[in-house]
Nucleic acid binder design. Structure first.
Length: 426
DNA sequence: AACACCTGCAACCGCCTCTCA
DNA sequence: ATGAGAGGCGGTTGCAGGTGT
């Protein structure tokens, strides 16, 4: 278009703002609002271009800006969202109250990027820098490689979970289409398959966190999140890295810490969000309708499902319907719903649908070669419900369920094997 | 003390998207 | 449908202050 720059006029001041200029700009905006930025400088008596005024206001003078050191929570959020969104700083900034995109960008470039690099994680792709994940030094596992390996497993796990969760939601929707339970304050975070997500993000695949969040209001009917879930978690590793770095790694080899990396974590990669943002309970809708999944993602993460970054082809009603069914399943799935779901699985109609067990535990066990320790979560569920009056007729059903479970894990492994290798989650 | 180098951050630049005539 | 104006975004730069030699 050959547009001329907004600051083409000779005589406009550039460089650092003086207190006088700040005062003029502040006073004008407080009195009149900014209106047209281009017209503002003349009206406010400033020898600046409108763009410069806007930048000064949004990045510095705006009253709702928090300055100073980033908290650990904020760091986690930035890392998570960067893995999810890439360098979309303005999108990331919407999840960090009172922080500007510029500040976050600077913080990423000057702090977080370097730290991730030091941990052996490519800050761009959030993947391992090393191709040799099993490399070792002096016969000991390479911690960086371990961490990266963990990250990749976590990525694969999340993708599989996402797909399965989508199927499970479908199942639940079919089994109890009218079921709407209390939703409490649990929310869902997810990313969709991304067919319509921004091209600037390196990630176009799915990442879902199944998260046992303390924000979730556990009720008697809430079977999810009741147990602390052992799963690999790069962010926990990050936390461990930070804490051990601070203490100069003096506690190496301590319980639960492996070379500065905490191997067990109840959280997952989308676990922490700032207050007033969305706590994550987690499940995705990636399996069925990428547009819906992405739209829900946009909305739940706080974006606008119809904004410029994620124009959706799905209708708003679709979106709401999926959200409701998903929330109902997550929060309010009770024994009858579960039984109904299992029966539905057994039916021919849904023979390929995977039962909605506590698949984090299962998958983690599988990863750890602990398949025999699969705890018959279904029956734990029953046992726990026994205390509140549920039935507990197990034996035959148990074998049948084991078979279902085998199929289920095969499905997961197939999904993982089929997962795109360019997942940008990590 | 002087200099070089590093770091952090505010600000700029150029491109992109949206809106509207 | 098209093009211009305006705002917004992300990459980059430049400078001030800190640190090391």
């Amino acid at each position: 278009m050959g547009r001329s720059p907004c600051c083409e006029k000779v005589g406009l001041k550039k460089g650092p703002w003086t207190p006088e200029e700040d005062h003029k700009l502040l006073a004008f905006i407080e009195k009149h609002g900014h209106g047209s930025w281009r017209a503002l400088p003349a009206k406010a008596g400033l020898q600046r271009c409108g763009k410069s005024c806007r930048l000064r206001w949004t990045n510095y003078l705006r009253p709702d800006i928090k300055r100073g050191k980033f908290s650990l929570q904020e760091e986690h959020t930035i890392i998570q969202l960067h893995a999810l969104l890439g360098n979309r700083w303005s999108a990331i900034a919407t999840h960090l109250p009172k922080r500007t995109d510029n500040e976050i960008k600077n913080y990423w470039n000057t702090h977080l990027k370097k730290r991730l690099a030091n941990m052996g994680i490519d800050p761009v792709t959030h993947k391992s820098k090393s191709d040799n994940l099993c490399s070792s030094v002096d016969g000991r596992p390479n911690n960086d490689a371990n961490l990266s390996h963990m990250a990749q497993w976590e990525s694969a796990r999340l993708e599989a979970e996402a797909r399965l969760a989508g199927e499970a939601i479908k199942l639940q929707h079919l089994s109890n289409p009218l079921q709407h339970h209390q939703v409490s304050n649990a929310h869902v975070g997810m990313t969709g398959l991304g067919s319509s997500t921004s091209a600037t993000s390196s990630s176009s695949t799915t990442s879902i966190a199944l998260y046992n969040n303390s924000n979730i209001n556990h009720t008697n009917n809430n079977k999810f999140g009741a147990a602390r879930l052992p799963c690999l978690d790069v962010l926990k590793a990050w936390q461990g890295f930070r804490s051990t770095t601070k203490s100069e790694m003096t506690t190496k080899g301590g319980g639960g810490v492996h070379g500065g990396v905490v191997l067990e974590s109840p959280t997952s990669t989308l676990a922490t969000f700032p207050e007033n943002s969305l706590p994550i309970a987690a499940f995705g809708l990636a399996g069925e309708n990428p547009n819906i999944a992405t739209a829900v993602n946009m909305e739940l993460i706080g974006g606008n499902s119809s904004n410029s970054e994620g124009r959706m082809d799905c209708g708003e009603e679709d979106l709401i319907g999926y959200k409701e069914s998903m929330e109902a399943m997550l929060i309010g799935m009770d024994e009858s719903a579960w039984t109904s779901a299992v029966e539905s699985v057994k039916s021919e109609e849904h023979e390929n649908v995977v039962p909605m067990t506590n698949f984090i535990d299962g998958f983690t066990d599988l990863l750890l070669g602990n398949s025999t320790a699969n705890h018959h979560h279904r029956y734990e569920r029953n046992n726990s419900s026994d205390q509140s009056g549920g039935n507990s007729d197990h034996s035959d059903e148990c074998d049948e369920f084991d078979q279902e479970k085998k199929n289920y894990w095969n499905t997961i492994l197939n999904l993982v094997n089929c997962s795109p290798s360019d997942s940008g989650v990590f």
